[in-house]
Design a protein around this nucleic acid. Structure first.
Lengths: 328, 328
DNA sequence: TTGAAAGCGATACCAA
DNA sequence: TTGGTATCGCTTTCAA
């Protein structure tokens, strides 16, 4: 028997010791108005003395609620994820919820498994950001059948069945383009993330639309799945061409861009770097970089709050007021 | 009633439908050798058809084990934490364990609360990295009383009661110093983290001991709790003095140092930067930075594995082979 | 090879 | 104001 399984004081133990019933102990412990104050006092003393700790398992089991949320992310990276975790924590912990983190390692298969894991663990809800391989919601079938509340955030595929929270990618990409234009950049390199992601396409479309309003500006676009690939590609490109403006659609692409600029000693020249960022990284890389903020902490807060609303909402509810897809 | 609480198929349901007993269903489901293959087939078919999902809660409740680990960290940052999480995940998920993350927000009070939360949640074990405020183990009393397996990692205070996993800070600091000496640096600025942390003191002592073997080298040391404070302090210092070598004891301090060097256009000069790092960040900042690796992923793996060993070990075990404090 | 029954810890209903 | 009892879903003896 493992150490953790050692016997702990239970309500029944307390009841026997005090020669009263378990029901009375249970009620005394939670200050039920029916119970006399003298009994309450005795019970609480005993609980204290014998290190009574309520067994959340038994409680949740009885109440058929786990107070646990499953957080499924496409990958665990230093970009974005820590902020998301902080945001989600701040909401859930306050409400007595916990959450598991499951990483899909950029694989649809793993995402499916993670969903199954959540179901097996009887989570009360799921917060999920989709992998780049995820193109449909077939694997959400089980979630539907089990009627598990779910909120999709950040990496989504457009639909209006599930509640979603996303950044206003169009706006941020447009504002970024605007900044480069205002700076008078003539030749821009725009670096995007994985081409198969919805957020990439949205940012690309919006960015280019804005750039194209200034026909005199030349630009080039590349798609890179990681900072390392950004570096690889830039090594080649910057050998042949030069640019006076750079756009990075994320912290990841910005990281790759930065190390490349450093290597070629291009920082502190008159080039302009604009990015969409979670907010922390640019300050560490180079304070002269400008960026539009995609606040991961905020998104965590909003996604988690929204999930809790769904969880606590009755079936016969007063129709939802929020749009299925929420932009922040 | 929340959606998540909808009725799910249970073993009893299956038993009634098939006109057999619950025990038989339970055994059939887990391929118990006693059960005839025909019954197994029928049971499994029915389980499939009616979307039977074993209730992990009931199972854990019965077995008195939660299969949940509590991970308590001093703070959730983009440095180190993501790697730790990945390492821990890779070990625990494989073994059917989950974990929740609790952040102590650099506060002893919060750390105490987090420990209590773990106890209430009946975790099977605790992985903890201590806050800078933590100077003793008074708040571990409950852990002791409940006999909950615990492994302390990275941020520790020296003791030999609890199992601990730490980096070989002495070695890494010494190697870093060696690198700067070998490069012929004459004037070094050494940047350390929070002065009250054991890892800071160990790294400082070891670094300086090595540096002092070359009496001709001048050096200055500073202590900074965050990248932002590094930047603040460096702004002042670099205004008055210049250095040809820098040591950063962590990714956090390195981040602050880097942005300062960039701002003052000191990169790509003949200064030398050496750090102790989790391994990812220096590549994004500046590939010319050298570093000793403190591999967070590896530490996560080792700490989690060690915890599982404790959890599964019998009370009457064959005395431990590992030292209480393990260096990696 | 299968079934009946007890029990994990807490709660809530019904009686008293 | 208190006690007795059934119950949540599953596992595990003990019997048959």
């Amino acid at each position: 028997m493992s150490l953790a399984k050692m016997k702990r004081t239970t309500i029944k133990d307390l009841a026997e010791m005090l020669h009263i019933s378990a029901s009375t102990v249970s009620r005394a412990l939670k200050d039920h108005p029916d119970i006399s104050s003298s009994v309450k006092r005795r019970v609480k003393e005993a609980a204290e003395t014998f290190n009574y700790v309520p067994n959340d398992f038994a409680i949740n089991f009885r109440k058929k609620s786990s107070k646990v949320i499953g957080l499924i992310v496409p990958a665990i990276s230093m970009f974005f994820i820590p902020s998301i975790i902080k945001g989600i924590s701040s909401v859930l912990n306050k409400e007595g919820y916990h959450f598991f983190i499951l990483s899909s390692e950029d694989s649809y298969e793993a995402e499916l498994e993670n969903i199954q894991t959540c179901i097996n663990s009887r989570v009360d809800g799921i917060l999920i950001s989709l992998t780049k391989e995820t193109k449909d919601f077939k694997h959400f079938q089980k979630i539907d059948e089990m009627e598990i509340p779910v909120v999709i955030f950040d990496k989504i595929i457009p639909q209006d069945i599930y509640d979603s929270v996303v950044f206003d990618n169009e706006k941020n990409a447009e504002l970024s383009a605007e900044k480069l234009i205002q700076q008078g950049c003539q030749k821009i390199l725009a670096i995007f993330g994985d081409e198969s992601l919805e957020i990439t396409q949205t940012r690309k479309t919006s960015f280019l639309k804005k750039i194209n309003t200034s026909p005199e500006i030349q630009y080039k676009t590349i798609f890179c799945e990681s900072p390392e690939i950004v570096k690889e590609q830039l090594e080649v490109i910057l050998e042949q061409e030069s640019f006076d403006g750079f756009f990075a659609m994320s912290d990841e692409t910005l990281a790759g861009l930065h190390s490349c600029l450093i290597k070629r000693n291009l920082n502190n020249t008159n080039i302009k770097v604009v990015a969409i960022s979670e907010g922390k990284l640019p300050k560490y890389l180079d304070e002269s970089y400008e960026y539009e903020i995609n606040d991961g902490y905020q998104m965590g807060i909003i996604a988690a709050s929204r999930l809790l609303i769904i969880i606590h909402k009755n079936n016969d509810d007063q129709s939802r007021s929020l749009p299925k897809t929420q932009y922040i």
